[in-house]
Design a protein around this nucleic acid. Structure first.
Length: 296
DNA sequence: CCTTGAACCTGGGCGC
DNA sequence: TGCGCCCAGGTTCAAG
């Protein structure tokens, strides 16, 4: 589920409920995620106010008033939801609404800036997600974040920057774009979609978009543009809701309805004038969807 | 350095 | 209905 647009959607959904709120209690119902939760999680958060919600690539950053930062990665199946509560006391008022509560692993009890009590609940069936504590000062150099590449939002990702990270890379474009050290935040869906928008084959060697002197080719500029716009469009749509994934407020993103190739094996290419068919292949162990007729 | 593949986990969908 | 198999938005290791 969560590539950059989904994490940004989660951030925007949580922001009104979390910013300025006081953490009144923290419950850890199952501490074994991809990595164990910090042992001092409750101690580090309880009694502090949440100063801001940030994001870097696919990581959500919950910043506290003492410059502590709780960094969360949603893995493949992680999500947050907000529950309004009549009490802020942990336990006792936990309603078993669905079988899914078995995968509610972390619960932040808050008293919002509006004085209302709420629970922020992290649910993750596959437990590929993880959380760690750092500080504003140390965040950039943290092992999980220090090698992240260009953020595909804003202006940073232009043809020159993309050429720089693809220079001399023999790997196929698909693999190069999935590499978080090059561009940070793309996953399987948006790599497939960006390559279709740029009309480039996922099998093409990354270095073929860069001239010998390191300058970007026209195709490189096309790809940089495609990545920026697919990410911007997906954020504007509230991300993609695959399976039953929902935003923090319970609503569904709708970008999945505009997929050109992802999960569309066998269907006709939607590019005007193209009579090709979307094919599914496997690259580095993951499904690639692309049109062999118009992606070269 | 680069690349690929396995591992981590649960659940849904499909064929039989 | 049930079982077994394949597949799924990601990251991190180990091995070639």
């Amino acid at each position: 589920m969560p590539e950059l647009p989904e994490v940004e959607t989660v951030r925007r959904g949580l922001q009104p409920a979390m910013e300025g709120a006081l953490v009144t209690a923290v419950e850890t119902r199952r501490p074994e995620l991809r990595f164990p939760l910090p042992g001092n999680l409750a101690e580090a958060l309880t009694g502090h106010h949440i100063a801001a919600l940030g994001r870097r690539a696919k990581y959500l950053a919950i910043e506290l008033d003492d410059a502590t930062v709780l960094v969360c990665h949603l893995g493949m199946s992680g999500s947050f939801r907000i529950e309004e509560t009549a009490t802020e006391a942990p336990g006792g008022f936990y309603h078993e609404r669905s079988k899914d509560v078995a995968h509610d692993h972390v619960i932040l009890h808050l008293r919002g800036a509006d004085g209302r009590a709420r629970r922020i609940i992290y649910n993750d069936p596959r437990r590929f997600g993880f959380m760690f504590l750092t500080t504003r000062a140390d965040m950039q150099s943290h092992p999980h974040l220090k090698d992240l590449g260009i953020e595909p939002t804003g202006n940073a990702l232009d043809a020159e920057a993309l050429a720089q990270v693809l220079h001399n890379r023999k790997a196929p474009l698909k693999a190069a774009l999935l590499d978080q050290r090059a561009i940070a935040g793309l996953g399987n869906i948006y790599v497939c979609e960006a390559l279709w928008r740029a009309g480039l084959s996922p099998k093409r060697a990354a270095r073929t978009l860069v001239r010998a002197d390191g300058a970007p080719t026209p195709r490189c500029a096309l790809l940089a543009e495609a990545v920026r716009t697919v990410i911007a469009d997906a954020i504007a749509a509230g991300g993609s809701s695959l399976r039953d994934y929902r935003q923090a407020d319970g609503s569904l993103g709708y970008f999945q309805h505009t997929f050109a190739v992802y999960d569309r094996e066998g269907q006709p290419c939607v590019r005007p004038g193209c009579s090709g068919t979307v094919r599914r292949t496997v690259q580095s162990g993951r499904s690639t969807f692309h049109c062999t007729t118009c992606q070269k």
